[in-house]
Amino acid sequence: MVPERGAPVSRYLLDKFLFTIDRDPELVERYREDPAGTVTWWEAEMANRLLSCTAPEQSTWQAFTDAERAALVGHDHVTLFEMGAHPFLTLTLFIALFERDHGPMEYQTAYARAMQHLTLPYPDITT
Rank of each mutant, 00 (worst) to 15 (best):
P3T: 01
R5Y: 05
V9G: 06
R11Q: 14
Y12D: 10
L13M: 08
L14W: 05
K16D: 01
F19A: 12
I21H: 00
D22C: 08
D24S: 13
E26V: 08
E26C: 08
E29T: 01
R30S: 11
Y31L: 07
P35W: 11
P35I: 05
G37V: 04
G37Q: 14
T38G: 10
V39I: 04
T40C: 05
W41K: 12
W41R: 15
E43N: 10
E43S: 12
A44D: 15
A44C: 04
A47S: 09
R49A: 05
L51R: 11
L51P: 02
C53H: 08
C53N: 12
C53Q: 11
A55C: 02
P56D: 05
P56N: 04
E57F: 02
Q58V: 01
T60A: 06
T60M: 03
A63N: 01
F64E: 06
F64D: 07
T65H: 02
T65I: 00
A67T: 07
A67C: 01
E68S: 05
E68H: 06
R69V: 00
A70M: 04
A70F: 02
A71Y: 07
A71L: 05
V73T: 13
G74Q: 10
G74C: 08
D76S: 12
H77I: 04
V78S: 10
E82I: 09
E82S: 14
M83E: 14
P87Q: 13
P87S: 14
F88S: 15
F88H: 15
L89Y: 14
T90V: 11
T90P: 12
